Amino acid sequence: MTKLSTTLVVLCSLIALSLLAISAAEEIDGKTPKMRPHTVHFHHPKDQAHRKKFAGGYKLVSDPTLILDYHFGPVMTGQNDVIKLFVIYYGEFTKNQRTTLRSFFKSFWHPKAPVKTDRPTVEKWWQITRKYVDLYNTPVTSNIVAAGELFDNYSLGKDLNQSTIQQLVIDSFAKFGTDARAIYLVLTAKDVTVESFCMNVCGTHFYTFPSDATDSQMVPYGWVGNPATQCPELCAWPYAPGGSLAQPLIPPNGDVGIDGMTITIANILAGIGTDPYGNAYYQGDAGAPLEAAGACGGIYGAGGFPGYPGELLVDNATGASFNVFGARDHKFLVPWIWNPDTLQCAGQV
Results as ranks from 00 to 15, higher is better:
262 T>N: 12
194 V>M: 05
308 Y>R: 01
162 Q>S: 13
78 G>T: 03
179 D>L: 09
337 I>S: 02
282 Y>K: 13
257 G>M: 11
75 V>G: 02
161 N>C: 10
349 V>T: 12
45 P>E: 11
225 G>C: 03
332 F>L: 03
248 P>C: 01
10 V>C: 04
128 I>T: 15
200 N>I: 04
27 E>G: 02
153 N>R: 10
211 S>D: 12
310 G>C: 13
97 Q>L: 07
67 I>F: 11
300 Y>W: 11
300 Y>S: 12
132 Y>E: 06
129 T>P: 00
113 A>D: 13
161 N>Q: 10
322 F>M: 13
99 T>L: 14
250 I>H: 05
142 S>E: 09
302 A>D: 08
160 L>M: 11
75 V>S: 00
177 G>T: 10
217 Q>L: 15
331 K>D: 07
184 Y>Q: 04
309 P>T: 06
52 K>F: 03
269 L>Q: 02
334 V>C: 00
36 R>M: 13
37 P>S: 15
324 V>I: 02
259 D>W: 05
58 Y>G: 06
124 K>Q: 12
232 P>T: 05
6 T>N: 11
173 F>Y: 15
67 I>A: 02
100 T>Y: 07
204 T>G: 01
103 S>V: 03
320 A>I: 02
131 K>Q: 15
252 P>T: 04
121 T>G: 07
281 Y>S: 00
73 G>T: 12
156 L>V: 04
211 S>T: 15
51 R>S: 09
24 A>N: 15
67 I>W: 02
298 G>P: 13
144 I>A: 03
75 V>F: 01
163 S>M: 01
77 T>W: 02
278 G>L: 04
191 D>W: 10
136 Y>T: 00
341 D>G: 04
109 W>E: 05
256 V>E: 01
217 Q>W: 08
141 T>C: 05
208 T>I: 09
328 R>E: 05
136 Y>G: 00
76 M>Y: 01
241 P>A: 12
220 P>T: 07
265 I>W: 07
341 D>C: 00
199 M>G: 02
122 V>T: 14
207 Y>A: 14
173 F>N: 11
206 F>N: 13
167 Q>F: 03
132 Y>I: 07
299 I>G: 01
267 N>L: 00
320 A>C: 08
249 L>K: 14
71 H>C: 08
105 F>K: 12
118 D>V: 02
181 R>M: 10
211 S>K: 08
334 V>N: 01
242 G>W: 07
180 A>Q: 14
255 D>Y: 10
328 R>T: 00
113 A>F: 11
187 L>F: 09
254 G>Q: 08
52 K>E: 08
